[in-house]
């Protein structure tokens, strides 16, 4: 049987299995740590840094940090939340997020995080980068204006043999997601919907369907992101 260890998150004593990731341990104890690049059931990547906590005084990403006995974690503090807000604001100015026109609005994790922290406007200047909307695939459209480069699509959307449908190309600020040409021919409607769901923002959209849920009934219209976690006590 796995060893049970004790960690302290914002002063609250939490019990969890040794070696579990801090994010998971917190969730099991009804504590929400915000995430963006993390996707349940897929190996964590630790790229967006939203889940950063102070672990024994050092900044660590909760989705990639295994817990250990006696860890002292700061999560929901003014200092950490301010840093998380800054990261969210950077995402907004680095892309082109026209929420009023976006198919994902109301169901978008980036937007939901901004709502959670009630970010009225980013503190940084908008960059308005020139990005492409790629409509050359038969099942999906990729809008690079909204991509947050979380790599969830690359990591999670695979065929029966474990081959990824998506990949990154180029580097640095020119990096972008592409759908493999040959794999795109294999992509059916269900796979397209799965890809749309895996994408935290509105960068991957399945064709032939959009704006199906009325305003007021979308995922984050009434309840903040993380309220499902905070409910388990």
């Amino acid at each position: 049987m796995a060893e049970i260890v004790r960690v302290y998150i914002d002063g609250k004593e939490c019990l969890a299995q040794n070696g579990e990731y801090l994010l998971q341990a917190a969730r099991e104890n009804g504590i929400y740590i915000p995430t963006l690049c993390h996707y349940e059931g897929v190996k964590p990547k630790g790229s967006c840094r939203i889940c950063t906590c102070k672990v024994n005084g050092r900044l660590m990403t909760a989705c990639t940090t295994p817990i250990a006995e006696g860890m002292v974690v700061e999560n929901n503090t003014a200092e950490i939340n301010e840093m998380r807000k800054a990261i969210i604001e950077l995402f907004f100015v680095e892309g082109n997020h026209f929420c009023p026109t976006c198919e994902k609005s109301g169901d978008c994790e980036l937007q939901a995080l901004a709502y959670k922290y009630q970010i009225t406007a980013p503190r940084y200047p908008f960059l308005f980068p020139t990005k492409r909307v790629v409509a050359e695939y038969s099942r999906i459209i990729i809008d690079h204006n909204r991509c947050v480069l979380c790599k969830r699509c690359v990591r999670a959307i695979k065929d029966a043999e474990g081959r990824s449908f998506f990949a990154y190309r180029r580097r640095g600020q020119h990096i972008e997601v592409i759908l493999d040409k040959r794999m795109s021919e294999q992509m059916d409607y269900e796979k397209a919907l799965e890809a749309e769901k895996v994408c935290p923002v509105g960068a991957i959209m399945a064709r032939r369907i959009a704006f199906t849920t009325p305003v007021g009934h979308r995922k984050y219209d009434k309840k903040p992101i993380g309220s499902d976690v905070e409910k388990i006590k």
Partner: peptide
């Protein structure tokens, strides 16, 4: 007013 909004969709 905050970020240009729909008119700013011409920015690209």
């Amino acid at each position: 007013a905050i970020m240009g909004g729909l008119p700013a969709m011409r920015n690209g």
